[in-house]
């Protein structure tokens, strides 16, 4: 269904991102909170990984550390073979725009720019020439062709998320991080968005890491990583929604 022109990197199962003894604490003394507590995680390439856990389990913090948005207190993070601890702010920013794509739960798009300008934004920031053919195909596949000149306020929630996905995929990043991408959407838009993420893995060989607390969303993943109190609490391979519900219940969340 996706044209062959969009075939991306070969579908290997190499490690796209890796954390070792990843620890993140907030506050000091009595007020210290251990959001992450020695997490060792390997994110496999060309697969859709879901990070799940109850509120406060550290799943968002884990994703932020993986994406270079937050710096760990101790431990290491390596994405696409680069150790993030060695990068200063500017280098980290460059790394993000060259190797990482984002889809957030809300406030994904700059309200002042049109959909098309939003999609091209990271490449413009990097001063890089977009792959116009890839843009056309993405816009086509995501059904955004007649929405490109609209501003975010004129788009529905699902359309806004599709614009964010197009932006994340345009530069063929090593990893796309999605933070509760369906949190604000109705069920139809949700399945649309999740379907696109799934297809980007299957048909483009894209690596996607998604934080979610919805079992239905997690069921789209190849692998579900369960987190509790900042520690890894197990993984599920290609689970069904029921499997996920069971596992979550087991965590006490």
């Amino acid at each position: 269904m996706i044209p062959s022109s969009l075939t991306g990197p070969p579908a290997t199962v190499a490690t796209a991102a890796r954390t070792r003894a990843l620890t993140k604490t907030y506050g000091r003394g009595h007020a210290e909170v251990r959001a992450l507590d020695g997490v060792d995680l390997d994110v496999e390439g060309a697969r859709l990984t879901a990070i799940m856990g109850p509120s406060g389990s550290g799943k968002s913090t884990l994703m932020h550390c993986l994406a270079g948005l937050d710096s760990p207190t101790s431990g290491s993070v390596e994405v696409a073979g680069v150790s993030l601890a060695d990068l200063d702010d500017t280098a980290l920013t460059r790394f993000r725009r060259e190797h990482v794509g984002f889809v957030f739960q809300a406030f994904n798009l700059l309200p002042t720019l049109t959909a098309r300008q939003n999609i091209l934004l990271p490449l413009e920031l990097a001063g890089a020439e977009p792959d116009w053919q890839r843009l056309d195909t993405l816009v086509d596949v995501l059904g955004l062709a007649d929405r490109l000149t609209h501003r975010p306020s004129e788009l529905s929630g699902g359309q806004q998320q599709r614009v964010a996905i197009a932006r994340a995929l345009l530069a063929s990043p090593d990893v796309v991080f999605a933070d509760e991408p369906t949190g604000n959407l109705d069920s139809r838009s949700s399945s649309e968005v999740l379907g696109f993420l799934r297809r980007s893995v299957d048909e483009l060989g894209q690596t996607v890491v998604m934080v979610t607390h919805e079992p239905v969303a997690a069921a789209y993943a190849d692998r579900v990583v369960l987190l509790r109190d900042g520690k890894l609490a197990g993984t599920l391979e290609r689970p069904s929604a029921e499997d996920v519900v069971g596992a979550i219940t087991g965590l006490g969340g």
Binding site: L69, D89, T90, T93, R94, R96, R97, E98, F102, F104, F107, N108, L110, L121, P122, L125, A126, R167
Partner: peptide, 9 residues
Amino acid sequence: LLRCVGATR
């Protein structure tokens, strides 16, 4: 958000 999607300081 601009910083997230790759704008340097």
